[in-house]
């Protein structure tokens, strides 16, 4: 049966150790994909898969992707929350594979929020 061979992993390890010193450490951004039953049923896996594909294609090592449960806005799923270092988090709604790629390029890499897909921008102020 085809396997992930030890040689494959060794090669990756060597490459990683060679480039690890170049990394500044810490992550540029954290993306949380909401993977509750509602999210999965409306296509969250496709969204996350598209993001992983793009990140592996471009070999981006300082963006971390995590999954979380339902965020309580099931009708707006699939959703993702993007947090850039030292910036307020932005929630994106009604996503698909193409939209998340655009968010990766424009928001995460270029730092410009993709307003058309965002749920809301700014803090909820009570004053």
């Amino acid at each position: 049966m085809p396997k992930l061979t030890i040689e494959d992993l060794k090669k990756i390890k060597e490459n990683y150790q060679a480039t690890a010193t170049l990394r500044e450490g810490g992550f540029r951004a954290k993306v949380t994909i909401h993977m509750g039953t509602c999210g999965i049923a409306s296509g969250a896996r496709k969204v996350m898969s598209a993001l992983i594909d793009e990140i592996t294609r471009q070999n981006i090592t300082d963006v971390t992707i995590v999954t979380s449960g339902c965020a309580g806005l099931c009708s707006r799923e699939p959703m993702a929350t993007v947090e850039l270092a030292e910036k307020s988090p932005v929630k994106y709604v009604n996503l698909d594979g193409e939209k998340i790629k655009k968010i990766l390029l424009e928001h995460i890499i270029d730092g410009k929020i993709v307003e058309e897909y965002a749920l809301g921008i700014g803090n909820e102020a009570t004053y």
Binding site: I12, K13, N15, Y16, Q17, A20, T56, I60, T61, T64
Partner: peptide, 10 residues
């Protein structure tokens, strides 16, 4: 992998 994170793109 030792110190290489499993979620590394490679």
């Amino acid at each position: 992998l030792e110190n290489v994170p499993i979620d590394h793109p490679e």
